[in-house]
Nucleic acid binder design. Structure first.
Length: 894
RNA sequence: GGGCGCUUAGCUCAGCGGGAGAGCGCUGCCCUUACAAGGCAGAGGUCGAUGGUUCGAAUCCAUCAGCGCCCACCA
């Protein structure tokens, strides 16, 4: 799809919308993003953290995807066999809840519908909305291999889940047990520890008394969840607590149902806290559960699945929800005079459901499935310690390690319907077995009326297999052989434990190797759910709206610019995206200029002896840019790369590089024009390639107009070594003269501005040579200086030159004289020079003091001392010049 | 309760041992044939506080203050 339009047809403003759609479709059609498993190239692979199938792309995805696409596109240009594998997650709870809500609007409860009909509804929902996020990824420009698109409930991935489960089951790593679980009363399912978010709430701590049943007094206990006292089955004190020595073995009487609760001793009780006595509610508190196990206290489950009071509690509380029950218990204790103390507010952390945000109840929900993590965690810790998995930034490695160290068994059964059903069957004969294929009968006793476990697996159970299940595991596919372990995983830190750590454990266990060699962890964009952050920027930023308005490149640039690995919070504003849009437009217009003078084809650099100093300068700056960008990307610092490109393109290439070529381009000889055009096109073409991973569309759009190849997607990544031979020489040759030229031009422009001298009136400039060699400094850039500063001529005068009617500027200590005639008011300039003299003198004094310091001379490295000497020399030169100028001015003015 | 991070220009952040930087915002001038989504010039900071190490500290160390995040079964 070579672009046929000529430069003249390039509008003055870049228009992203049409270009993006056209280019993306063409890229996919040409198969540029498709990776081959049979390859001689070195593989590079990223698997996309699968977004929820029914989700919409939010700004957090946009960031995550931008980083991945930058790495992917660059790897492709570097010649790797590059695979970015996309896919979506069925997101068990999240999706089920959405569909349930949908049904609720129609007045239907999922239980009425039945499991199969309900699942049909979910699948229909998935078909309807499941593709949306894929389309949105395309709008962003994600260069995924769409031929490999996966979904966690695909046939292949479902089989991977079963194989993994069965293998772990048979290996004793998956077991079934009855323990307290984190129960969400709203979603009515168990959750793993990782799915519980602890948050501070302003609670209350209520202390009340249990009367001893022998009438010899009472025992005070405290709680933040007063309603749980209905399920108390004992009181515990520390075994060594003197205060309760006599109470041990006695009983207290429950004030509402008269049950007698034993007082037991357990070391888990902290005698220093509160009264030193703890009410024990084994069925509703993990610590209490453990105490009960050790001391033999009974379990009393007082909650129903929806967190209302069960029938075991006294009638007056029955059916109340937990909060009403709390109030009611409070009232009744007060009536009975058993309340001792109320502390309110009493801030403490309470677990909340990560999906619906209800308060979690520790609850006995019958038997649940668990993964025993003891044997999994050590290999995973070792892999990080030995560097087989590298975290970027590496401080996450420590968090990872400590999390694994404290990890407890993982509850994987969910009381949901949407998900991978647990592949375990039970037969009336009491046998239990796991199978990859649906069995017809019990393998032990042959009975046919077997029943499958009703629960489904935690979504993260399938997610943990993602880096290899997507590549074909458990089959030994070519994809798996080529691309596993993958190169890098890119993700936010919020799912480091939920997901990343588990992939490492399962990859090591099931395949014997880590799933990825690097984990690039980025910060969080202030997100769409309006989550905290006191300094909220206000409204949610919708990536798609931004793409429509400013273009995908603009959004990508804004995100890339923030994506520094060290940053945890990545604030994004619409102004930032606007800046991205402006940048794209800047590149576009630089290209417009060049395309007016460059005919297309592969640019060729003129031989070095034909290069103007300005061209050598530009080439050496370009060389620095390649090194910076490559270095930044190697270190995973997308931000650094984006900022470096912006600086080079805008402040160096456009502001000076292009401006300095205009003379040759518009007024030069035929050869000068052609050489200048080639140099500019050469730098532009390579710069586009450097920028392409971040801003794929505008770079392709321009690159094709340069007619250097089919697509920039397949172009090679610019070599740092390309100018290795010349760049240092160019830099050395041009650096000092360029800085002088730049300062001179700026000073003259400032002078024009301050005194209203219009750009069109040319100036005959004189430079008083104070030091030898100034002519040599001006020479290489003389024509450029004249053009940019609007000078008709530059001449040199002796240093004592004392003509009147001149304004006197100072450039690097050299007096620069601008003829201004008799009517010109020089007072402003005089003031300016005075101020300049003052600062220069202050700096001079500082340098003198430093060089007069013996310790400095003795201990500072020689190059620092040398630098300081040069600085002092320069300042001396400058102050004496300034004094002289002032004298001249005063003489002329008087 | 444990751990991590942040505090630099009005805003958002780079710099992490040797002369305070960027983007946006602000001020002035300019529709100069690449770009007004632009050009040119400019204003603006005792680098959170205190103490220490050092010839030299925004940069290293300690303490403190404020902010944020992660982890955590103290009623």
């Amino acid at each position: 799809m070579a672009v046929e339009s000529s430069p003249a047809e390039m509008p003055t403003q870049y228009e992203p919308a049409a270009a993006e759609r056209r280019l993306y479709g063409w890229w996919v059609e040409r198969g540029f993003f498709h990776a081959r498993a049979r390859t001689d190239r070195v593989p590079f692979c990223i698997v996309l953290p699968p977004p929820n199938v029914t989700g919409r792309l939010h700004i957090g995805h946009a960031l995550d995807h931008t980083i991945q696409d930058v790495l992917t596109r660059r790897a492709r240009m570097q010649g790797f066999e590059t695979l970015w594998l996309p896919g979506t997650d069925h997101a068990g709870i999240a999706t089920q809840v959405v569909v349930e809500r949908q049904l609720a609007k129609e007045g239907i409860d999922r239980r009425e519908l039945g499991r199969e009909a309900f699942l049909e509804r979910v699948w229909r929902w998935k078909e309807q909305y499941g593709g949306e996020i894929v389309e949105q990824m395309k709008a962003l420009g994600d260069s995924c291999d769409w031929e490999r698109l996966r979904f966690t409930m695909d046939e292949g991935l479902s089989r991977a889940v079963r194989v993994a489960f069965v293998r772990m089951y048979e290996d004793g790593l998956v077991y079934r047990g009855e323990r307290l679980v984190n129960w969400c009363p709203t979603d009515q399912t168990a959750l793993s520890d990782s799915e519980v978010e602890h948050e501070e709430v302003e609670g209350e701590l209520v202390t009340f008394r249990y009367p001893l049943s022998d009438g010899s007094g009472d025992v005070a206990v405290a709680t933040t969840r007063l309603e749980t006292m209905l399920g108390d089955t004992g009181i515990a004190v520390h075994p060594d607590d003197e205060r309760y020595r006599d109470a041990l073995g006695k009983r207290v009487r429950h004030p509402f149902d008269g049950r007698e609760l034993p007082i037991v001793a357990d070391p888990a009780v902290d005698p220093a806290f509160g009264t030193g006595a703890v009410k024990v509610t084994p069925a509703h508190d993990p610590t209490d559960f453990d105490i009960a196990e050790r001391t033999g206290l009974e379990l009393m489950n007082i909650l129903r699945a929806d967190a209302t009071m069960a029938d075991v509690v006294p009638e007056e509380f029955r059916g109340l929800d937990r909060y009403s029950a709390r109030t009611r218990v409070h009232e009744r204790l007060k009536e009975l005079g058993l309340l001792v103390k109320e502390e309110r507010p009493y801030p403490h952390a309470v677990g909340h459901c990560y999906r619906c945000h209800s308060e979690i109840e520790p609850w006995l929900s019958g038997k649940q499935w668990f993964v025993a993590v003891e044997r999994l965690k050590e290999p995973a810790r070792m892999a990080a310690k030995e560097g087989r998995v590298r975290f970027i930034p590496d401080r996450w490695a420590r968090n990872y390690d400590e999390w694994l160290e404290g990890l407890r068994d993982w509850n994987i059964s969910r009381q949901l319907w949407w998900g991978h059903r647990i592949p375990v069957w039970y037969c009336p004969g009491g046998h239990e077995f796991a199978a990859v294929q649906d069995p017809e009968a019990c393998p032990q006793c042959g009975q046919a009326d077997i029943e499958q476990d009703p629960d489904v697996l935690d979504t993260w159970f399938s997610s943990q297999l993602w880096p290899f299940s997507t590549l074909g595991w458990p089959d030994e596919t070519e994809d798996l052989a080529t691309f596993y372990p993958t190169t890098v995983l890119v993700t936010g830190y919020e799912i480091l434990y939920l997901w990343v750590a588990r992939m490492i454990m399962s990859g090591l266990y099931l395949l014997g190797d880590v799933p990825f060699r690097n984990v690039l962890i980025h910060g969080l964009v202030r997100d769409a759910r309006g989550r905290k952050m006191s300094k909220s920027l206000g409204n949610v930023i919708d990536p798609l709206g931004m793409i429509e308005r400013y273009g995908a490149d603009a959004l990508r640039y804004a995100l890339a610019r923030m994506a520094s690995p060290d940053q945890q919070n990545l604030p994004l504003s619409e102004e930032g995206i606007e800046a991205g849009r402006n940048f794209a437009n800047k590149v576009w217009n630089a290209a417009r200029l060049i395309l007016r003078v460059y005919r297309g084809g592969v640019p060729e650099l003129p031989p070095p002896e034909r290069l103007a100093a300005a061209q050598k300068w530009l080439l050496s700056r370009y060389h620095g840019c390649v090194a910076d960008v490559s270095g930044a990307l190697d270190a995973g610092d997308i931000s650094e790369a984006a900022v470096g490109l912006h600086r080079f393109i805008w402040s160096e290439f456009c502001d000076w590089g292009l401006e300095m070529e205009k003379g040759r381009l518009y007024e030069g000889t035929e050869r000068e024009r052609s050489d200048a055009a080639n140099v500019l096109a050469w730098v532009l073409e390579r710069t586009l390639r450097l920028l392409h991973p971040i801003m794929p569309f505008v770079t392709e759009e321009i690159w094709q107009r340069l007619r250097v190849g089919e697509s920039i997607v397949l172009a090679s990544w610019p070599e740092v070594g390309e100018l290795e031979e010349w760049a240092p020489r160019f830099a050395e040759e041009t650096e000092l003269p360029f800085v002088f030229a730049q300062e001179l031009v700026t000073e003259v422009r400032r002078f024009r501005g301050d005194h209203g001298v219009p750009p069109k009136s040319t100036i005959e400039l004189r430079i008083a040579e104070r030091a030898p060699g100034r002519r040599g400094l001006v020479g290489p850039f003389e024509t450029e200086i004249r053009r940019l500063a609007g000078l008709s001529s530059i001449s040199f005068v002796e240093k004592g030159f004392a003509g009147s009617g001149y304004a006197r500027l100072l450039v690097q200590g050299d007096p620069v004289l601008i003829p201004v005639g008799d009517l010109f008011d020089l007072r402003a300039e005089t003031t300016r020079l005075r101020e300049a003299l003052e600062t220069a003198r202050a700096e001079e004094a500082r340098a003198e003091a430093k060089l007069g310091n013996e310790a400095f001379l003795a201990k500072a490295p020689p190059e620092v001392v040398l630098k300081e000497r040069q600085k002092l020399e320069r300042l001396e030169h400058e102050t004496s010049s300034l004094r002289e100028q002032l004298e001249q001015l005063e003489a002329a003015g008087s």
